[in-house]
Amino acid sequence: MDIQVVKVGIVSCSGEEIPEGTLCRLACRKVLDERPGETVTICLPLFIAGGEEERTFAQNYPTITVDGCDKLCAAKATEMLSGKPSKSLSIPEILKKHGLTPPTKLRHFGPEEDAAVKAVAEEIARAVDEVLEEE
C-alpha cells in the first residue's frame, strides 16, 4: 500500500536583519494559514536547538525552503542538519520574476508590501502543489 504524503514542510529564512526576511516570514505564514491541511513548518534554529524529532523534519516531510538572500540559510541549514529539500525558493528571484521591488522596512508591512507578499506566497503555494504531485 502506498504511503500518502499528507503535508509539505516549509522552512522559512527568518532573516531578522533584512526586509526580505520579514517578507519571507509573512509569505510563508500566509501559505501555512491558507493550506493548513497540506503544509507544516519548523523554526529553522530548531535544527540545532531542538531534538531528534526536529532534526528529522526534512526526512519526514518533503520540504520547501524559502530564502531571503544569497546566503541561503534555510536551504543550507535544512540540507546540512535535516535532509535535502525538495525545492529551494529565493525571494530575490521571485521578486525579479514578478517585476517587484524589494521591501525596504523590517517590520509593520502594509499595503505597499502586499503585492510582494502575495507573489511570494503564490510561488510557495505553486511549489507545494508541485511537490504534492511529485510525491
Binding site: 531578522e16 536583519e17 529553522l44 534554529p45 546566503k71 540559510c73 541549514a77
Partner: peptide, 24 residues
C-alpha cells in the same frame, strides 16, 4: 526591532539567527 530602530539605534544591533545555524 524596537530596540535597534528606535530605542537604542547604533548601540543595539541584530543579526539573522539562521546565520548562526549555518556558521556564517
Amino acid at each position: 526591532y524596537e530596540l535597534v530602530e528606535r530605542v537604542r539605534p547604533g548601540l543595539a544591533t541584530l543579526t539573522c539567527l539562521p546565520l548562526l545555524v549555518i556558521n556564517d
